[in-house]
Design a binder for these strands. Structure first.
Lengths: 209, 209
DNA sequence: GCTAAGTAGCTTAGCGCTAAGCTACTGACC
DNA sequence: GGTCAGTAGCTTAGCGCTAAGCTACTTAGC
């Protein structure tokens, strides 16, 4: 279905590959820093337990945080991709339509604004616009003020599709988040915001050319 | 550099596309549920503010959680990809080596175990193994017990590369997570575990032909 | 005015993935 | 012991992306 690839911690699923892991794995739930709110172990606990056994010199706690972030991103991403297919669009196309929709009337932006917002190269943008235009969900017209540029606008059908799609995508997220109570969800949102800001900051002072 | 695509909330960066958004955006920090720990707004706050203006009928809070998860995943993923390139491998190859490494001595698994663990099709796995074998980081040998199967083992160079790469990848994560104090990090880890388990659970009772 | 640098959008080559189909082999059933 | 569904790994076609290069146009400097 989708097409991904990803970093950090591997994916795990069924049985771990070797014999006698379970003991060590149960150790690790106690070793970890976060044996508090949750009483159930997840796949990431198993992975950090393996790392603790093989490389006890490493402090593996950050891996647990980013490993879960990665897995949640991929899990929900795949799930939403499948949902959007009911409207005949993929995740990439959804993002284009959603950006136009939330920009407000007259639901018009330039390809340049879209590719910058979606962190996409112009080549990738051209492809998405081609597909959406062929599907009749948006229209390209010349920018009257700049003959190099275009303006991309949602059609009536495009507006209809995105308004329904965004609702059912949000529903999926809402169901998943129902596993947390209101206070936990608010706490999680705030902690993620803080981590996001901190992560963006540390990246700025990084490598080179 | 990398090659991605993603769901849900779009990416934002510089200026929002329309005039007079700033007012509404500042509203939204108060409107949100999570104006508590963090005192600074992030890009996701701006996006949910736009949605609140355009579609006040939608409860956009879950979008803030999963939007941040998506952005963090992509941000750190890209950053780690760049780091791994210093060792001559990409994220996909890293994951293969890391899975072998943390399985413990003799650092040997079958392609089937690897592709299941990494949630990859066999075709994708073949490609990764080809590249790693050509680079001399692993070896394929026939499985003595099953003539259909192979066994994939880390070479000495492969063990060396992954042991250094995993350290510097972890260092990047550690730096990013330093934006949170120890208690916040533990809380975040626990909440993410709970959300991951809940999300996996809701997916099970979903669609399907 | 003219030129040079910058910008908008499109095109092409290459990459890594999925999905689907292939051969080779295994193991359970009669 | 012959059959036949199941499994392992590889191959191919197709997709969406990036990176790099293109033309057309705009804007700043002289």
């Amino acid at each position: 279905m989708p097409q991904q690839n990803e970093p950090g911690i591997g994916q795990d699923d069924e049985g771990e590959a070797r014999t006698g892991d379970e003991v060590l794995i149960n150790d690790a739930a106690r070793t970890g820093d976060d044996a508090r709110t949750g009483d159930e172990r997840d796949a990431v606990d198993a992975i950090t337990a393996q790392w603790n056994r093989e490389r006890p010199d490493l402090e593996a706690r950050p891996m647990a945080v980013f490993g879960r972030i990665y897995r949640l991103s991929r899990l929900m991403g795949d799930r939403m991709e499948k949902e959007y297919q009911r409207y005949g669009i993929g995740r990439g196309e959804f993002d284009v339509l959603a950006t136009l929709r939330r920009s407000g009337e007259p639901y018009t932006l330039s390809p340049r604004q879209l590719s910058a917002t979606l962190m996409l190269t112009t080549g990738g943008m051209t492809g998405r616009l081609d597909k959406l235009e062929k599907a009749g969900l948006l229209e390209r017209s010349p920018d009257p003020g700049d003959r190099r540029g275009l303006r991309v606008a949602l059609t009536g059908r495009g507006l209809d599709v995105i308004d329904r799609a965004v609702g059912s995508g949000l529903a999926l997220q809402t169901v998943a988040l129902d596993g947390l109570d209101a206070e936990e969800a608010a706490q999680l949102s705030a902690l993620l915001r803080k981590l996001l800001l901190a992560t963006e900051r540390t990246g700025a002072s990084s490598s080179g050319p």
